[in-house]
Every structure is written in C-alpha cells, then in structure tokens.
Design a protein around this nucleic acid. Structure first.
Lengths: 414, 414
DNA sequence: GACCGTTCCATCACGGGCTGAACAAAGGGT
DNA sequence: ACCCTTTGTTCAGCCCGTGATGGAACGGTC
C-alpha cells in the first residue's frame, strides 16, 4: 500500500506553511522589510505583519534596524534572531566523538571533539560518552531553544526508528542509538534522529557553505570506505529502505584488484584510503603507518607532492583519474550541478581533483553536462556533524510553531 | 540565487490542496464514502462534503452507489468520474508517431500509432503529422476536459520551454516542439509539455501498472541506446539541467569494445541492441537484418531460445549478466524498490532478466538491498506515451480547480 | 412491526486566518 | 512648510474549516 505523499491541510497547517516560508526566505535572502516580504510572498502586508509578530514572540526573527535609501518611509528590517534556536549535531567516528551546534543562520556556534576508541569501548560505553558530550553541548545552549539532535554514523541507518542497522567499521549492528540517547539525556525522543554520515555531509553542503541552495548535489566521502550522499531536486535521496549512496562497491573493472567484499575492481579498491597508501608508499613508509593519524599522514603526502616527488604525484594522478571515472557515472545518472568531494579528497585537492575533473568532463554525455562542478569540500572532516546540526535545526524551518513562545518583553524601553 | 522551493500559501491554495488530496486518495484507494474520507484526512465531515460537492461540479468525482454491510446508515460511495478529464500522451519515435489518452483512473481509453519516417520527413513535416495525430486524439475526447498534452521524445529536453535540445536518433537539435504543436492545434501552450522517453516511461510505471505507487523506482530503456528514468521519493529526478538518466555511457570495462562515443567499455556496448545482434548472430543472419522490424527480430530470437539454441542462449545469458552489473550500480547508488527493464529487455524476459537478477543480488552491499525487484515492463513499448498521458493528466490532480465547472444537472430525477 | 442504536450526511453558527482599504508614521524633495 | 512616496498597523469583511445538531437510512431486538 503506497503511503499518502502529502497530508491534507487545515488552517493551522496553512499558518505553519506561511511562518515557515518567512523563515526560509529570511535565511536565504538575509534581512528584509515587511513590505519586501509581502511583495515576495504575494501575501498582503497585513498578513506579513502578523506572521512577523508571531515569529518574534517565538524569538525566531527580530528587528534589524531600518532600510537605508529610497524615498518614502524606510522599511524596518526583519532578520533572523540567531539566538532563538539551535540545532545540535553529534558524530560517532572510529576514533573520536564530536558535537556541533549551529544557529538559525547556519553559523557554527560551538564545536567539541574528544578522542575516543569506539571499538574497545563497546556500544554501551560509547553511547554513555556520546550522551556526556551531548549534555555539555546542550549546556552551552543557554537561552535558545534546542530544536533537535541528529547523530551522524558511518553506516546504514533506519532513520525512522533511529537505529543503526549496520556499521561495519564500528562493529555495530542493530543499535537503538536514538533511544539510548533520549534515555540518558532526558531529551525528547522525537527530536533525536540518526542518519548516515554521507547523507548529513551532503545536507551540510546543501544547507550551508559555498554550495548553499544547490538543489542537485552529490557528496562523496573519501575514507577507507567510499560513500555518497545524494540531493536531488532539493531533497535528500534515501532510497526505498534508506540505503542509497552505497557507491563504494560499484564495479569499475572486472579485472581489477580483489576487494574486501569478495569481488573485483570495486571503486573502493581504486580510490579508497587503502588504495592511496598502497599506491604511494612502500611498506615501512610512515605514510603507511596505521598508528599515525590520518591528518598527519595527509600532511606528509602533501609535503612530498609539493616537493615534486614523482611516485607521489603519479599515484595521486592515477587515483584522481579513477575518482573521476566513478564520479562520471554518478554525474551521467543524476546530472547534479555540483559534486563535492569530502574526506581525504578534500585534503589533497590540488593533486586529486584536477585529474578527476578532466575525466568527468571527458565522459560527459553532452557538453552541457560537462558543466558540472567538481569541488573539494570546504567543511572538511566536520561536514557530517555540521549537517547533523543543520538537519536537527531544519524541523524549526518546517514548523516554526513548535518553538515555544516567550514573553514579548525583550527590549528595554527608551 | 537559489529558487524558492515552495510558494507561500493563501486560502485558495489551501482549498486546492484539499481538493487535490481527495482526488489522489480516491485514485489510490478506489471509491470511499465521505465518512471514510473524513477519517482518512483528519478533516471534518462537513469539509469533506463541500470538497466532494465542488469536485462533483467539476465532474472529477461522482456518486458510486452505497457501501454494503456494517450497521448504521450505509455510506454513499464517492468515486472518480472517469469521464471528467483526459490526459493525452504523444510519442515521437524514429519509425512511428503515436498518441494515447488516459482517463482519471489511469485506464488507456484510446491509442493510435501511425508508421512515419521521421528522418526523411524532417522536423516541420513531422510536427505537422504529429499535430494531425494529436488532433484526432483530441477529437475522441468528447465531453471530457483535456487536461494537457505531453510529448515523449527520445532525447534531451528542456522541459521548461518545451524544446528538444538534442535527439541524435531523430537528428533533431533545438526544436521548439511545444510551440509548434500549440500553434498547429490551437491548444494552450501552458498545457503542452515535452519530456524524455525514459522519464515518461518511469512515470508510467510509477503512476499506473503493477508498480503503481512505488516511490523509489528506476526504469531502464532497452534499445540501441540505453537510458534511465529515475523516481526517488515519489518524484522524478531530472538533475540540474534535466539530463539525468544518461546511463548508456557508464564506464563498465576499461578494456571493453569501442563505443560510438569514442570511449571504451560503455554499458551500451555491452547491453545495447547492437551488442545483442552482434553477440547472437553472424552477418547475413536475418536477426541482424536492419530492414526487418525489431519486433520481428525479437520473435526470431525468442524462437531460437525456446528451441535451446546454444549460441543464442549463451549470448542472452552474457548480456543479461552485463545488464545486471550495470543495474547493480544504479541499485547501490539509489536503492530503489524496483528496477523496471523496458524496451527489448522486456521482450526477452525469461532469458535476460534472470541472469540480471542474479548479478544484482550478488552485488548488493547488504542483504536488504538485494531485495530490490528487477522486473520486465508490463507496458512494453507503449510505456513512454502512456507516461506522457499520465503526466499530462497529473496537473489535474495537483490543481483540480483548473477543470471548468459544469451545470450540476447530470442525473435524471426519479 | 415498533423501537433503538449506529452511522452517514447536510446544515448552520462560529472562529481563525487572509484581504483590501483606510490611516498613521517616517522619510525625501521642492 | 508642504507634498509625495513608501511603510506598517488597524479594522471590517470574507472564505474556509469546525463542531454541534438534526434528519435519514439501515440493522438488530423484542
């Protein structure tokens, strides 16, 4: 039985939609006067005034001075009240836990990361520690409304129930993460969600950063595993069971090297971190030393590339080209405006991304499709948790009425 | 500047949304009483009654007898009035033009196909003939409201302007098809649209047929070229410039055969019709004879396969497996619930689809993803124009108020 | 067959939200 | 100073969904 795509609308929903519209347009266009909002929306000035008044009592917008220039009475600017609400993103990673808060303008206002060995701690103690980190982050949200918490996990997630179905790198299976956090934090379960790291990184690029508002965008994670987050038509593509974006095992070469999954020539064997280390370092080379941090090893590689080391440059070029071949498949299938390369790809942009661009351009079906932009992520390794924070905040933009009203008395009289 | 995703809502939009909801739910669930509609929608019975009354004056719903069983007063069934509106789908194909009309229940009520050589006729005379065919189809729409016309074209389309950007097989480039038809037919331009054949075939499978309502669905065309139509989350994925679905030139094997695009190992070289004919027939074999129709040649192949011809069976198995490898890439990226194989794939289902299924299942990242169903299209070669008709009709489901009101006097008194 | 309970549907006064016009407010131009 | 322009608020009005009420239709029961 197909699920009904949209709910029928009553008056409250009408109001919610219009409040949400005002928030969205202010977020995208910055401060505007009521009159400008009325023109943009097609609603009457009276309606806009009441909408702004209601949003003000919920501390989602505030007065932002007067508009300069022009003749006639200057408009009073309405802008986002960035102190009104916060979204919180948490991140579970193999070797650390992290938390990030964003305000309604999309600015990161707090970020903390603690080293943590998830494998040796096990599931329960990891959730304990994650709740502790989240609790501190919630403590930093002083006057603002904590809209929600979204946890980024490198694995397959049942977003409906907040359960991590399978995260091989964490050795997690069927972990009820949202429940665990809700219980430990005393935070409402329906405002806690869990999602895949690639999906959230794509969300971050879409909602904030340089690619903001790009409705068709693909984010590719670069780690030992390769994953993708797909945004099409301004919506995250999850697939029928929420497992979209599993591009690491695309078959790229039937004669290629053996993959951990048992098959040959998966994309991961060509462009994964293991492939990078294998291609540019002999055994014993510090670059291959698993005890060093990824950042440190990236820094070593960067130094060698800058010094013109031939083996390093050759390996990077080869991996960049293979990256481009895989990206071209995604591009031809989905025709995004931008492909954002994250993880280690973004750490070595000068040597990986240009070869990838060339390959993508050469494999575009038509010239226009070659106009796709292939860029490194500006958010770097914080993309996933930033995306989580933005995703948590987005519920406010969809339904501003869930934010509690405050006493209107916030300004001192003259 | 990002386009504002949704418009602000005024009261008329509220009404439209609720009218549209009633139509949609009746289309998916069949006839329902007002009371059932009220429970399903959460709206009051009073509101449902007024909605039904308004839809009745527009001849989109009608009374459908009384509900049997149960105690209390039996409900009066409200059902779609299938005579109220029609969607018209046109199809431009290399060797024929065709038209199809569907009623609001999704039934095909008229279908005509005329042989036509698009290449020798040229653009203008093709549009002339297409308008003639469309005019006859419009003539069959006697009392019903013709909601719109959508033309299926095997090529890249600017759906916003109704222009065929590039259709190599038709040798068309920058053809303003919607304008041409509107002028010749005297039909309102804003109700004529043009779309890619794979997109429309995917729409047809999504809106009608056995896969109806499957929100995540991929349709793969099987012809000389290979294309895909992608539906994700119940929405057609067009990509940033409308060129999504160009899967024919996915790089499957760096050492594979030369492709017409200049590269090696494109998927098309493995599973396109040319690959099929090459694999299972020597030169001079009637199966390779380009003067015979595709249907005739498929029939020959089917006969040989049924007789157990080893070369035929081997070739089909090999192509089916290559089909599965490509499909697995799409499945891992998008995680659809169903992949529908159309074109010639659907004409040889017993020999192509089973090997494809095996390959897809073997390449699924996790067991649940292997649950994807790989099926042949039931709509066969009419999928694209049926999808066009359904797409044209869908504007009525989105905004029922565009259908003109009629005099309420339709039933004879007792 | 009369009565009752149940369910369905239409009607109507009510209320919430948007609208359009009128009006006060705040600036620039002459 | 005066006028013009533009902004934002106020208010009566309208539209649409709501909840209550009551008639209608049917099964069950005595």
């Amino acid at each position: 039985m197909p699920v009904m795509p949209e709910q029928p609308t009553d008056r409250a929903a009408l109001r919610r939609a219009n409040l949400a519209w005002v928030i969205r347009v202010l977020r995208e266009q910055g401060g505007l006067s009521r009159a400008q909002l009325a023109v943009l929306s097609g609603l009457s000035k009276a309606t806009v005034s009441t909408l702004v008044a209601e949003l003000t009592t919920r501390r989602l917008v505030r007065s932002g001075g007067v508009a300069a220039g022009g003749q006639g009475r200057p408009g009073q600017i309405v802008e986002l009240d960035t102190d009104g609400a916060r979204g919180i993103g948490l991140e579970v990673h193999l070797d650390h836990l992290a938390a990030t808060s964003v305000d309604t303008a999309g600015n990161v206002v707090a970020d903390r990361q603690v080293p943590f060995d998830v494998l040796s701690a096990g599931v329960e103690r990891t959730i304990d520690k994650l709740a502790e980190v989240a609790g501190k982050e919630l403590g930093d949200v002083v006057g603002a409304y904590p809209a929600g918490i979204t946890v980024s996990v490198p694995g397959l997630v049942d977003t409906g129930r907040g359960v991590v179905r399978l995260a091989p790198r964490l050795r997690w299976r069927e972990v009820p993460l949202a429940d665990g956090l809700a219980g430990r934090l005393g935070f409402p379960l329906d405002r806690i969600s869990v999602d895949n790291d690639a999906n959230l990184a794509a969300t971050a690029e879409f909602e904030a950063g340089g690619m903001r508002g790009t409705a068709d965008l693909v984010y590719v994670t670069g780690d030992f595993g390769i994953g993708a987050g797909v945004i099409a038509g301004g919506r995250l593509v999850r697939g029928s069971i929420g497992y979209a974006g599993e591009v690491g095992h695309m078959s790229m070469d039937p004669m290629g090297p053996q993959c951990s999954c048992g098959r040959r020539g998966c994309w991961e064997t060509q462009v994964g971190l293991a492939a990078l280390f294998h291609a540019l370092a002999a055994p014993g080379d510090p670059v291959s030393d698993p005890h060093r941090s990824i950042e440190e090893r990236m820094s070593l590689i960067r130094t060698r590339a800058e010094q013109g080391d031939q083996r390093t440059l050759g390996a990077l070029h080869q991996i960049g080209a293979a990256l481009g071949v895989g990206v071209s498949i995604v591009v031809n299938l989905l025709s995004p405006a931008v492909v954002v390369l994250g993880g280690y790809f973004a750490a070595l942009p000068d040597w990986l991304i240009e070869p990838a661009r060339i390959e993508v351009a050469a494999r575009a079906v038509v010239a226009e499709a070659a106009a796709v932009r292939v860029v490194g992520s500006e958010l770097g390794f914080t993309a996933a948790r930033t995306g989580g924070a933005l995703a948590a905040l987005s519920r406010v933009f969809e339904d501003p009425t869930q934010v509690p009203e405050r006493s209107e008395k916030t300004e001192a009289p003259a």
